[in-house]
């Protein structure tokens, strides 16, 4: 366990160091990918319990709007404070919605979660105070009063994304090996047995839902700080679909799966758009089909195959 923690921290330090020499566009692309990776790590917790949420856009968007609104109304640019606020607000909302959602499974869970994110989308589109469908700009973040300028401008958000990724990555890695992590798989496999062993299935799902909301809020907050602009599209169902897409692409067998998936997704989308601006979605679709057909457990299964000799 200490070895894995050291590896994750080491990878984080390497990413931070690499960030100092990266071109701005790559720093920005990776920041968005890592932010999405955070959201998908939360989704991973739910998917391992057999629950597919098509509504993580709700917390992604809410986290981003918390950062934007708090920055404007409380006149603060303190990145850590804004991200903390995003997490707290998302968990508070999840604590209410989760009470209802933890009663549902399968398609009902997916549709209910999507419905809530679409409600937020509808509210934001109609709210002129928050820029309606155009959204609004977010003030550049400060970290202890410092903000990088010029070429190294995107580095602060990138650094925050890497640190968050390392922290959440270590948490998820340990979580998957904990009794609660195993309990998620147990819920997916047989809820009756879980209850007859003495654990509450609803409580397990509720806990996972709260954690997933916190991670999505953090991801949304980092995206807002990195992009400097937020709009209601972040809550639209296609954004939530993107997260499921990334989860399938990267795989949910390991904490690293979502990060690999998110980076691949962002790279693929960027180059697909460059190659074919009008049909880039088709390229993404074909890529997903290929992965489902040949790597049904995601790209991570390829890593497992190489390192552990596991079948695909």
């Amino acid at each position: 366990m200490k070895y894995a923690t050291t590896m994750i921290v080491g990878a984080g330090i390497a990413l931070l160091a690499a960030g100092l020499f990266m071109p701005g566009w790559l720093t920005f692309l990776l920041t968005l990918a890592f932010a999405k990776g955070l959201v998908v790590m939360g989704l991973l917790l739910l998917m391992r319990a057999g629950l597919v949420s098509f509504g993580q856009g709700l917390y992604y968007c809410l986290g981003a709007y918390c950062v934007g609104i708090a920055g404007d109304y409380f006149e603060t640019q303190n990145a850590l404070l804004l991200l903390l606020l995003a997490i707290v607000v998302c968990v508070a909302l999840a604590a209410v919605i989760g009470l209802l959602l933890c009663r549902y499974r399968d398609i009902f869970f997916a549709m209910f979660s999507m419905a809530f994110s679409m409600i937020l989308y509808g509210v934001l589109v109609k709210s002129s105070a928050f820029g309606s469908s155009d959204g609004f700009n977010v003030k550049p973040p400060l970290l202890f009063g410092w903000t990088p300028t010029g070429e190294s401008g995107p580095f602060l958000a990138y650094g925050l994304a890497v640190v968050a990724l390392v922290g959440v990555g270590i948490f998820v890695w340990r979580y998957l090996r904990s009794p609660m992590g195993y309990a998620g798989e147990a819920v997916r496999e047989n809820e009756i047995r879980v209850e007859y062993l003495g654990a509450s299935v609803r409580r397990i799902i509720y806990t996972k839902y709260l954690l997933a909301a916190a991670m999505a809020g953090l991801g949304g907050g980092i995206t807002a700080l990195a992009a400097g602009h937020i709009d209601p599209e972040m809550a639209y169902w296609t954004t939530s679909g993107e997260f499921v897409f990334i989860a399938l692409m990267g795989g949910v067998g390991h904490a690293a799966g979502p990060v690999i998936g998110a980076v691949l997704f962002e790279l693929l989308r960027t180059y697909a758009f460059q190659i074919s601006p009008y049909t880039w979605q088709m390229i993404l679709g074909i890529a997903l089909l290929v992965i489902i057909l040949y790597l049904p457990k995601g790209v991570w299964s390829l890593v497992e195959r190489v390192t552990k000799g596991k079948p695909l």
Binding site: S178, P179, A183, A186, G198
Partner: peptide
């Protein structure tokens, strides 16, 4: 899993099983 559930009333999030 059975041991993990049996031993803890509130399931730990971080300690290994």
């Amino acid at each position: 899993i059975a041991y993990g559930i049996m031993k803890h009333k509130i399931l730990p999030l971080m300690s290994p099983l």
